[in-house]
Design a protein around this nucleic acid. Structure first.
Length: 259
DNA sequence: ATGGTCGGTCTCCGA
């Protein structure tokens, strides 16, 4: 089973590039971030025509997440638990049905800039809520994968120029500590396991020729529960998508799980 | 040495 995450930075702007990648890569399940669309305006028909079920959790203008799946979904949940006043659409969850089901949590973690400030406080609060959700899921001992745009550079090797990120919310010590606290509950970073060295990036800014200079960062991650990690076969980054027509600033990241 | 790019609209803000 091939699972992928892709921050598309606007579904309207990616209406050609997304189907092109789906056709070339044939993932079974994809979690999308930054659809920047309300549910009613999401162009589900073109994706359904490719064999995907479509579940969205959108909002106007910003944020928004979705699941595309060739396999049946159950227990679909929208929104990260822990704060009923949080109106930002950043979390969608479902169980992918099959002989060996796997729960997927698609997430768009807050950027948090500028830091310090209220946006950074929201980021850290959101990460604490995510940690609590992961703790609950771990207690269930099921296979699950938390995949999406984490907006966290875990280590210096995950940035081409780490020195330029020192005061950024994506790399501040408190951001990386909160991320480690989630991973250290017992999750496996699928891409790190398969490609342990430096130089693996998932985002290149549109500005300043970042792509041409390979000035990238790794912020899109797939974290596997122990039961999902048992089934890890392969993982990787579809870097070439960044060089295509009208690219997102992120590229797809994927994992293959047995059965 | 500096500034630079997108996307969705809220003709500015978020990233």
């Amino acid at each position: 089973m091939k699972l992928a995450t892709f921050n598309i930075n606007g579904i309207k702007a990616r209406i050609d590039a997304l189907p092109a990648w789906l056709g070339a890569s044939s993932p079974d399940v994809v979690c999308l971030q930054e659809i920047k669309s309300v549910d009613e305006a999401f162009p589900r028909e073109v994706l359904e025509a490719m064999g995907y079920r479509v579940e969205t959790h959108g909002q106007k203008g910003f944020n928004g997440v979705a699941i595309l799946s060739k396999l049946p979904l159950s227990d679909i949940r929208r929104g990260l638990p822990g704060d009923d006043t949080d109106e930002q659409a950043r979390w969608i969850e479902a169980v992918v049905e099959g002989p060996r089901p796997v729960r997927i949590c698609g997430l768009y973690l807050p950027n948090g800039n500028p830091a310090p400030g209220p946006k950074y406080d929201y980021k850290l609060g959101w990460m604490a809520r995510m940690k609590a959700r992961v703790q609950d899921l771990l207690a269930g001992e099921e296979a699950f994968v938390c995949l999406g745009d984490y907006n966290v550079i875990p280590q210096s090797q995950d940035a081409a120029r780490p020195e330029t990120w020192l005061v950024d919310a994506l790399y501040l010590p408190a951001s990386r500590e909160a991320y480690r606290q989630i991973v250290n509950l017992g999750l496996t970073d699928a891409v790190r396991t398969r490609q342990p060295g430096p130089g693996v990036y998932t985002f290149w800014d549109y500005q300043a020729g970042a792509w041409e200079r390979n000035n990238g960062i790794r912020i899109d991650h797939l974290l596997l529960s122990p039961q999902a990690a048992d089934r890890l076969e392969d993982a990787g980054v579809d870097k070439s998508v960044r060089g295509g027509d009208k690219p997102s600033d992120h590229v797809p990241v994927w994992v293959n799980l047995a059965a």
